[in-house]
C-alpha cells in the first residue's frame, strides 16, 4: 500500500470541500487510514479554501506540512500558486486554468499574476504541472458545477485508488439525477490527464 498527501485548493463556492470529502471516502473504501481537514476562514463565498487529505496505512497529523504534498489539485490558478510551497520536490500539480480575480485586483490595488508567474511558482518544486481547462469542459457539459468531478477525474489518473471504488463513492455523494453528467465530467477529466501524460 502506498501513501498520498493531497492538497485541494480553490475559492469558496467552487466545490473544493465536496471534492475532498469524496476523495476521503474513496480512500477509506480502498483500505487506507484517512484524515482530512479544511481551512475555510470566515467566508461563505469567495475566500481562499484549502483542504488537506492524507491517506496512508496510519495517519497521525491531519495537516500536511509545507514541502510534503504529493499532489496539488487546484480549482483556480492563483490558489495553485498561493499553495505551491506545500508541494514536495517532484510532486504533481493539476491546475484548472480558471481565473477568479480577488477584490484587490478588481480595485486595481494588486495585479493578478500572469500565466508564466503561476507556472514559475509551481516549477520551483516540480516539472509535473498539468494545466487543464476544467471550467471550460464543465461549461461544455452544460453545468459549471461539474467542475469538481472533472477535477476528481484528473486526480484519479494519479490516485492509488481503483476506478470501481470511485464510482461507488461518487454515487453516495450525488443525487441520482446528477450522477450521469458528473460521471461524464469525471471521465473527461481522467482522459484529459491520461491523454497528455508526457509533458
Amino acid at each position: 500500500m502506498k501513501k498520498m498527501d493531497l492538497l485541494v485548493t480553490g475559492v469558496g463556492g467552487q466545490g473544493v470541500v465536496l471534492a475532498s470529502d469524496i476523495i476521503g471516502e474513496t480512500a477509506i473504501a480502498a483500505g487506507f487510514d484517512v484524515k482530512k481537514t479544511d481551512t475555510l476562514g470566515m467566508a461563505q463565498r469567495g475566500g481562499s479554501v484549502v483542504s488537506h487529505v492524507r491517506m496512508a496505512p496510519k495517519v497521525w497529523s491531519p495537516l500536511i506540512r509545507e514541502g510534503q504534498a504529493d499532489l496539488l489539485l487546484a480549482f483556480e490558478k492563483l490558489e495553485a500558486a498561493r499553495w505551491s510551497h506545500y508541494l514536495r520536490p517532484g510532486g504533481i500539480a493539476i491546475v484548472n486554468m480558471y481565473e477568479q480575480p480577488p477584490l484587490s485586483v478588481s480595485l486595481g490595488q494588486e495585479k493578478y499574476p500572469a500565466q508564466d508567474e503561476i507556472a514559475a511558482a509551481l516549477k520551483r518544486q516540480t516539472d509535473q504541472v498539468y494545466f487543464v481547462d476544467g471550467t471550460g469542459q464543465a461549461q461544455k457539459l452544460g453545468n459549471v458545477r461539474t467542475l469538481n468531478l472533472f477535477m476528481l477525474g484528473c486526480f484519479a489518473a494519479f490516485a492509488p485508488l481503483e476506478i470501481d471504488i470511485w464510482k461507488e463513492s461518487i454515487s453516495r455523494f450525488l443525487p441520482e439525477n446528477l450522477r450521469e453528467i458528473n460521471f461524464k465530467a469525471f471521465e473527461i477529466g481522467r482522459k484529459e490527464i491520461e491523454g497528455g501524460r508526457i509533458r
Binding site: G47, R65, G67, L103, S104, V105, E110
Partner: peptide
C-alpha cells in the same frame, strides 16, 4: 524542515 517560501506577489483573497 526545509521549505521554500510562499510564492511572492500573490494577491490576497480575504473573506468578503
Amino acid at each position: 524542515v526545509k521549505v521554500i517560501p510562499p510564492a511572492s506577489g500573490m494577491p490576497r483573497r480575504p473573506p468578503l
